[in-house]
């Protein structure tokens, strides 16, 4: 090993500053959410209390955040499952050329780069003109999928780019049907990556704002509820809410990463290195 150069230390310091920049503000509101009952939105701390967290459990203080949380959770799970299933299917489809695959690919990219407010506006308009009611579980659900599916699809591309086809050929040579090959060979090999797709599906939906704005109807999802609060709530209760939902996100991320890690470990013990890509 060669010696660390000066540039290493300069870059390491830069990286540390970047991480501080990423996490500093969130940690700050984490601290400020324990503000005393008389405290304001900025330092200094006016005592330490759980006052603002208690406030979250009183409906009159903050509106229907628990309902919003339940809806966001349900929607997140719906989007997660759909994203995994649809992305895997599309990923399999894209391994061979089929008529229209090019168009579909560019549509997926468009879905990723299109300004979110256009989806919101367009879906809202269609539902209005057709006389349907917008609802988070229908129009909101579809709109969010236009955001999560491209990510899922791109991950599947990355997975299949690194996929060793000889496993499939071996299965086929031994007489497995196409479905058996997918079910018993392909899916187990790509399983850890599917955890990644699921993580994207859930978290992107759980935090999605712009595409849900005009498509969720009269019942808000959590991000919409939080945004509504920013205009009329001027107490640290909003920090308490921010802290709780961030902790929840971290918990989810941790669980997914742990699952991926355990799966990787198990696989390593089983002695196969298949599907370790991504």
């Amino acid at each position: 090993m060669e010696k660390r150069t000066t540039s290493f230390y300069v870059l390491a310091a830069f990286f540390a500053l970047f991480v501080l920049f990423l996490y500093g503000p969130t940690i700050t509101i984490g601290i400020l959410s324990f503000q005393g009952p008389q405290g304001g939105l900025t330092f200094p701390m006016n005592g330490v209390s759980l006052h603002w967290f208690r406030d979250l459990f009183q409906e009159q203080a903050v509106g229907d955040i628990w309902g919003a949380f339940r809806r966001s959770l349900a929607l997140g799970l719906m989007v997660m499952v759909s994203t995994v299933v649809i992305s895997v299917m599309a990923g399999l489809a894209f391994r061979k050329r089929f008529k229209g695959s090019g168009v579909l690919f560019y549509l997926a990219i468009t879905s990723l780069v299109i300004p979110s407010i256009l989806i919101s506006l367009g879906v809202g308009l269609i539902f209005n003109q057709l006389g349907f009611k917008v609802h988070w579980a229908t129009s909101g659900f579809g709109s969010q999928l236009t955001w999560t599916l491209p990510f899922g699809l791109l991950i599947m591309f990355a997975v299949f780019n690194r996929f060793d086809r000889s496993y499939e050929e071996a299965a086929r040579d031994q007489g497995a049907t196409a479905w058996q090959t997918i079910r018993h060979v392909v899916l187990p090999i790509i399983a850890p990556s599917l955890i990644g797709v699921a993580l994207f599906g859930f978290t992107l939906s759980y935090d999605e704002f712009a595409r849900t704005l005009l498509t969720s109807g009269s019942y808000n999802t959590l991000p919409l509820e939080i945004f509504g609060m920013t205009t009329n709530v001027t107490t640290p209760v909003i920090y308490a809410l921010g802290t709780l939902t961030t902790l929840f996100s971290l918990l989810i991320i941790g669980a997914f990463l742990l699952a991926a890690w355990i799966m990787g470990k198990r696989r390593a013990r089983a002695g196969s290195d298949a599907g370790q890509g991504v």
């Binding site: 700050t28 935090d207 939080i226 920013t230 921010g242 939902t245 961030t246 971290l250 989810i252």
Partner: peptide, 11 residues
Amino acid sequence: WTSNIIRMISW
């Protein structure tokens, strides 16, 4: 993977 709105509020 965490909320953009919360991250904005935290400034």
